[in-house]
Amino acid sequence: MTNSVNHIVVITGASSGIGLAVAKKAALNEQCVVIMVAKNEEKLVAAKSQLVAAGYLNVEHFTADITINEQVTQLFKFIQKIKLPVYGFVHCAGTMYESPLLMTRDHLVDEQYHQHVKSAIMLAQGISKIMARNKSGSIVFISSVVAQQGSRGQSVYAAMKSALHGLTASLAAELGTMNIRVNAVAPGVIDTALVAHIPDEKKQQLIKNTALGRIGQPEEVADVINFLFAEESRFITGQVIHVDGGLKLGL
Rank of each mutant, 00 (worst) to 15 (best):
N179A: 12
Q115R: 02
V86I: 14
D110N: 14
I127Y: 04
K83G: 08
I82T: 11
V86L: 07
M178H: 12
H91M: 06
L167H: 00
G153L: 09
N69S: 15
R181N: 06
M122A: 12
S128E: 04
T73E: 15
Y113F: 15
S119T: 06
H116T: 11
A120H: 00
S144H: 01
I79K: 02
A159W: 03
P100G: 09
I82M: 10
S155R: 05
I127W: 01
Q115D: 08
K83E: 15
I121K: 08
A120D: 01
G126L: 04
I79V: 15
K77H: 11
F76P: 02
H165R: 12
S138R: 04
P100R: 06
H114Q: 15
S151M: 13
L102R: 13
N179L: 06
P100M: 09
I130E: 10
Q115Y: 03
A120F: 02
A169H: 11
M131Q: 10
G137K: 02
G153M: 08
K77D: 14
L75Y: 05
A158I: 07
E111L: 13
G126S: 07
L171E: 00
L171V: 05
N179K: 12
N69F: 09
V146M: 05
I127E: 02
A169I: 11
K135D: 12
G94M: 04
L101M: 13
L108H: 13
Q115S: 11
N134W: 05
M103P: 00
Q115W: 03
V109S: 05
N183Q: 03
